[in-house]
Design a protein around this nucleic acid. Structure first.
Lengths: 146, 146
DNA sequence: TTTTTTGCAAAGACTTTGCATTGGA
DNA sequence: TCCAATGCAAAGTCTTTGCAAAAAA
């Protein structure tokens, strides 16, 4: 984990970003919780004890996103961020519970291959160049059905 | 078209909503342009000449959505609305151009069947009940590539 | 030291709400 | 007539920005 944090920090250094306390904590959060999807507010909640403000959270998210370290997914009107580097899930689908708001991954190789196939088809048919696919399934999760 | 407008108005009447001028114009807009996806601001632009305010646009959208007459799709952080009633496309995918913002439909029966199949699989595997699927492909459209 | 980053407060975009007035049935 | 719907202005969210102070290199 520390190796990964150092690698991320090096990427930022190469881009002439300074490794500040705020950035360190936010990077640590993503590396430590690589399967979680965090909204900006949640990130703020988790790091505010280190005296990190909302603008810094947003500004850091922007840098990490631009650098390909984290990935943004928008579900409903909310932004979610998760670690993209070192991630084995290249493309994945999301599930969202409409009751409690829980968002989780759905990783299924066949679906991904299917969607990539569609991508090729659309590129030809619509003469577009596509570079991202988002799929979200909405429903009620196990816990909320009880 | 007029028949469809009257049918929508009857649905609203049954729910004890009054058929006001503002609601009439917004319904007409959706029925006349059934393949378009409109953001709230665009709807406002198209009806403001009838003295319809922003709050009325938002309130009408809410009613039409709750009544199953229009369907909301969120792409990036923007809301888009389109006619759902009388629509032959039960489930469809969206394409978005990241350059000009254009959003269009991608209708492909095989993809839909595939996703519905995945839905069943997820429902079993995750013990969820799913009732909606959204897929968006992002890229650059033909016009913007020129 | 020098330049970037920060926190704060304020501004911005988009959306919703309170309320007196208007208008549909 | 009577209650729902409207426009206006104001308030709410969430996010971004300007700026002086602080911190990294």
């Amino acid at each position: 984990m520390n190796y990964e944090i150092r690698r991320i920090e090096n990427i930022l250094k190469q881009k002439n970003y300074k490794i500040t306390n705020g950035r360190k904590e936010i990077i640590k959060l993503f590396v430590k919780n690589r399967n979680n999807h965090y909204k900006p507010e949640k990130i703020y909640d988790l790091v505010k004890s280190y005296n990190i403000s909302f603008p810094t959270v947003y500004r850091t998210i922007e840098i990490l996103k631009k650098s390909g370290i984290i990935k943004e997914t928008i579900i409903d009107r909310d932004r979610y961020y998760e670690l993209q580097m070192f991630s084995k899930k290249s493309l994945h689908l999301h599930l969202k519970c409409m009751e409690c708001g829980m968002v989780s991954d759905y990783i299924d190789t066949k679906s991904i291959l299917y969607l990539l196939d569609q991508k090729d088809k659309i590129e030809k048919q619509h003469e577009m160049v596509l570079n991202n696919i988002y799929t979200t399934f909405y429903g009620i999760c196990r816990d909320c059905r009880r």
